[in-house]
Amino acid sequence: MNSVHNAAQAVLEVTGLSVGFAQRGTVLRAVDDISLHIAPGEVLGLVGESGSGKSMTAYSLLGLVEPPGQVSADTFRLCGKEMRAADERAWRQLRGRRIAMIFQDPMMTLNPVLRIDTQMVEAIHAHRRVGRGAALEMAAAALQRVGIADAPARLHAYPHQLSGGMRQRVAIAIALLNAPDLIVADEPTTALDVTIQAQILAEMQALCQASGTALLWITHDLAVVAALADRVCVMYAGRIVEQGPVDQVLAQPAHPYTRGLLDSTPAAAPSQHADNAGATRRLSTIPGLPPALGERPEGCAFRPRCARASAACLQVPALVAVSPGHEVRCFHPLARVSA
């Protein structure tokens, strides 16, 4: 990786990360040889369709992949700790303390039979020895920080008494409780109303900036990435196909898949790119469907859906730089458009 950041400072430094599932003699790789690098306070967007391995990547970063899934990596450093051979105990010390996670569906992430205070206090007590009273105060303060009014009363509520947006705020408050270095957010706004979505995005951004928390924001929505992220990684069929600074990747995508994603996203295409902003832009779609885990084609997995594919694409292309910090995994990258 030709990253400009110093590896010792990074909150997350993984290379060659794979998550495999053994099946009938072969190993199916949900995540195939990906490398991620997140600097302190940085917001990295991870974009891909359903089934591209985004969520599995997120779980592997917290050591939450369960058997039969197998995680392997060449480098795996989290907050300066070597995690390749880490046992459950070592993971537990980091989870919730240095690295936290927010899930997609707030209806499912909070335990329905436990009150909010129980679920918050236990997250504090998992890492710190404080009295129950002090922990409750910390919990109430955390709820206030994510914009929940009347926090002490909300602490006594059960999850079903809160709205979806409110529940996701609670989940975010729990993630922020122990001031982690990195939050992995797995499509946390997808299940919410658009207005709530925008609010939560803005709040997350402000909170992470204020506390210097780095963010790995997983989404299928390029518009969200454009608004939030510093850098973006585009994932397809378990591999990263393009990565770079978010402005560059969105303005000048080099991978045909990224281009396709942009064209099929309403209003996500950067406006400086459009000649006549007033005219309605025709949405196009990428032909075909993303391959299922067991049916990924040899070589470049995007090949069957790609207009530019050639015989060369039967090999897996390497990630090559098209400009500093902007890398693409394609034999036929799109030419740079002069601005």
Partner: peptide
């Protein structure tokens, strides 16, 4: 999963 992600035993 969320409970485990909080670092609970």
């Amino acid at each position: 999963r969320f409970a485990r992600a909080k670092g609970l035993s």
